[in-house]
Amino acid sequence: MASKAIIFGFLIVTCVVAVFASDPNHLQDLCVADPNNTVKVNGVVCKDPKVVTADDFFFSGLDKVGNTSNPVGSRVSPVNVVQVPGLNTLGISLARVDYAPWGINPPHTHPRATEILTVLEGTLLVGFVTSNTENRLFTKVLEKGDVFVFPIGLVHFQQNIGHGPAVALAALSSQNPGVITIANAVFGSKPDISTDILAKAFQTDKSIIAGIQAKF
């Protein structure tokens, strides 16, 4: 009997953790974001429903090719609560990702969302790494129509390994998933992280670290 009680208690705790691991549920039909409101909350303050229009739930332009003329050869075009205020409290968002030939979407994390990626055109090498207990790398080559999931918070990446442009559509389980690009955060922080700290972390010389920081 005691073992059943323990198992039941564990299930309750698991359910509670799952609830707190995603965006809060909405408590009304809609809560369109009011970007002009100066009040700060965990999310965005709701606009007066009387002034909400269909345009608050609309976005146009996801068919436009992103400019991949940059050092990494990719461009992310987000569709989150900033672009669509009607997404506020709904816990979902999208992004289009364009890749030049051999371009990458560099290793990064989404602190608030799981991502499901669908390849629309081209061939992508994708992967993610588990946390420090194992640091296990999962990779897969995706073709048009293939889907891959990146669990919340884990470092992941994509690379176009085809000879032409590639396009993918990412769906994320947050209205504002956030993104932390590892290289940008480590080498492009403001102010800089000490070269001594980074040299020890990456087991290299401070001059090498300084050279990398200069690129960011």
Rank of each mutant, 00 (worst) to 15 (best):
V97L: 05
N135I: 02
E121Q: 14
F57A: 09
V65D: 10
N67G: 06
P107S: 11
N135K: 12
E143L: 09
G103F: 01
N88Y: 07
N70C: 06
F57E: 05
V52A: 13
R96D: 03
V84E: 06
V81Q: 10
D55Q: 15
N105K: 01
T114R: 11
G73F: 00
T109K: 09
T68E: 00
V65F: 07
E115V: 13
R136T: 14
P111K: 04
E121V: 11
V141E: 13
N67L: 07
F58S: 10
P107Y: 10
F138N: 09
G73V: 01
V141K: 13
L90E: 03
R136Q: 12
V81Y: 03
G127I: 05
V52Q: 10
P49G: 12
P106S: 11
R136L: 14
D146W: 07
L87Y: 12
P71C: 05
L87A: 05
K140A: 13
E134K: 14
F59L: 06
R112I: 06
A100W: 02
T130N: 04
N67H: 06
H108G: 09
T133F: 10
L62V: 07
K47M: 14
V51A: 09
K64H: 07
E143G: 15
S60A: 14
N105S: 07
T89V: 08
I92F: 13
G61W: 11
R136Y: 12
K140P: 03
V119N: 03
N67F: 04
W102D: 01
D63Q: 14
S74E: 00
V65N: 01
S93T: 09
G66C: 04
N135P: 01
V76A: 12
E121W: 02
S77P: 00
L62Q: 11
